[in-house]
Amino acid sequence: MKQWIITFSKDENTTKLDMHAEQQPSMDETIAFVTAYAKEHYDVLEGSTPDKGLEGPAQDLLKRYGIAITGIVAHH
């Protein structure tokens, strides 16, 4: 299994997570992986409500935890 480095931005900082998968994870898989991490390590932001027209897992991650995924790269 390959190791993938997932990077995300939160509070003007970049965090790296290691993810193991045979092939590059899809954005949906990556969002699910980062969301699971966020649920364990961060509080939900107060007043977080989805914007109309900007709905979906990536926007939910941003609104709920202030996290934006910035990269998915293979670790060699």
Rank of each mutant, 00 (worst) to 15 (best):
W4F: 02
L54H: 15
N13L: 10
M27H: 10
G66F: 05
K16V: 08
P25T: 00
I67M: 03
M19Q: 14
D43K: 08
F8P: 02
N13Q: 15
H41S: 13
H20E: 07
H41C: 09
E46Y: 11
I72R: 06
I72H: 01
H20C: 01
G53Q: 11
K52T: 11
G47V: 06
G71P: 15
I69G: 03
S9H: 13
A68R: 08
Q24D: 04
K63Q: 12
F8Q: 00
L17G: 08
E22D: 14
H41F: 06
H75N: 12
D43W: 00
L62P: 03
I69Q: 01
E40A: 13
G66Y: 04
H41V: 06
M1T: 06
M19S: 06
A32Q: 14
A36Y: 09
V44F: 02
A36E: 15
S26V: 04
Q24Y: 08
K10W: 02
H41T: 08
Y42C: 04
T49F: 12
I67R: 01
K2G: 03
T70M: 01
D28F: 07
V73Q: 05
E40C: 07
S48E: 05
P50S: 14
T35K: 06
D60C: 03
S26K: 08
I67Y: 02
Y42M: 08
P50F: 06
T7P: 12
P25E: 04
T35L: 00
K52H: 13
K52L: 13
M19G: 04
T15Q: 09
V44G: 02
A68D: 12
L61Q: 00
L61Y: 03
M1I: 13
Y42Q: 03
R64N: 11
K16D: 14
Y65P: 03
H75C: 14
K63D: 03
K39C: 05
G56T: 02
D43I: 01
G66Q: 03
G71S: 15
V34H: 06
L17V: 10
K10F: 02
Y65C: 01
L62K: 03
N13T: 15
A21H: 09
G71T: 09
E22A: 12
W4P: 02
M27E: 15
V73P: 03
E55Y: 07
D18H: 14
S9K: 10
Q3F: 11
P25S: 05
D18A: 08
P57F: 08
A21Q: 12
L54W: 15
E55V: 10
K2M: 06
A38I: 00
T49P: 02
